[in-house]
Amino acid sequence: MTTTTGPHPTRRLILQGAAGVALLGLGNLPFGAAPARAAANDKYPEEAFKLKNEADAIKALYGKTVEPSDKVKLDAPEIAENGGVVPISVTTTLDKVTSISFFVAENPNALAASYRIPDGTLPAVANRLKMAKTTNVTAIVEADGKLYSATKEVKVTVGGCGG
């Protein structure tokens, strides 16, 4: 088993959730000093998923700066039919891709999903994400040790965090 979650982090998540309802945007979480993400690193990036802010989450996950690239193709709808299920996919023509991550800027926690792409796996992922409101979705492709991104605004009329 690779999950290392014990009872303590779970409880903290609950508390965080309760606070989140009342005080969206309150960011007083411990700032995890997660190192740059290595392709061989098998560990679940728990701290990065807990951060509110996109820049903080990128820093925790990768510890590097990102540059926009037209070689990253992000496909997402103009208007999400339902914020609970937004189909989002990314492909890239970049070489030596080791990971692809998705961030939703104004979700309670910006990092949505992060995929490790081993050798022999194509640099393309499709998934379905929740979006709380109209905001930017960013895909970050890690290729040859550098980070490249594409961003698109998705309009959300029915939010995906209210159940």
């Binding site: 998923f49 939703v104 990092l111 949505a112 999903a113 995929y115 998934n127 994400l129 929740k130």
Partner: peptide
């Protein structure tokens, strides 16, 4: 393929 997910996955 390894996916690390948070709560924003549908």
């Amino acid at each position: 393929f390894v996916a690390d997910w948070g709560t924003a996955v549908s």
